[in-house]
Amino acid sequence: MVKASQQELEKYKKLQKKYTPPRPWFRNAIQAFLIGGAISMAGEAVRQFFIFGMGMSPKTAGPPTSSVMIFLGALLTGIGIYDQIGRVGGMGAALPITGFSNSIVSPAMEFKREGWVMGVGARMFTVAGPVIVYGLLTAFAVGFVQFALTGGKG
C-alpha cells in the first residue's frame, strides 16, 4: 500500500465520519460565552475600580486595567489553573488578554529548563509569536491605507 490514493482516503474518511464523535459545538459555544464573559466582567470590574476608586478617566483607566488582567492571566498560569480554564472555555479563555498572557507565560515556564537564553528567551513567543507578527503586519497595512486615504491627517 505504502501511501493510500486519494480515492482510498475519501472512502476511509466516510468510514471515519461514522465513528468520530461529533464536536460539541453548542456546548463549547455556551462555555466560551460564559468563561469569556466572566473574564470580561472581571476586567470591567477592575476598570471601574480604577475609574471610581482611583479617580482616573475612562480613557486612562484602560492601560492599568490591561496590566492587571495580564498579571492575573500570568498568575493563574503560574499556579496551574489557566490551562483548566482554557480546557473548558476554549476560545472564550484564549481571546481575552488573559489568554494572550497565558500563551506567553506557559512556554516561558515550560522552557525554563532549557535555560534563560535558549529556553525562556528563544521560546517565550512560540505560541504568541505568530499573533504578534501578523497583528503588527495588519496594523502596518491598515495604517498605510489610512495614511493613503487621509494624507496623515486622520
Binding site: 463549547n28 482554557g86 476554549g90 506557559s106 512556554p107
Partner: peptide, 17 residues
C-alpha cells in the same frame, strides 16, 4: 505534550478524538 503539541500550562481545548 511539550515536544509534539503545546506547553503543558497552555490553556487550549482538545477535540473529542
Amino acid at each position: 505534550e511539550r515536544q509534539f503539541r503545546y506547553p503543558t500550562e497552555f490553556g487550549g481545548q482538545r477535540p473529542p478524538t
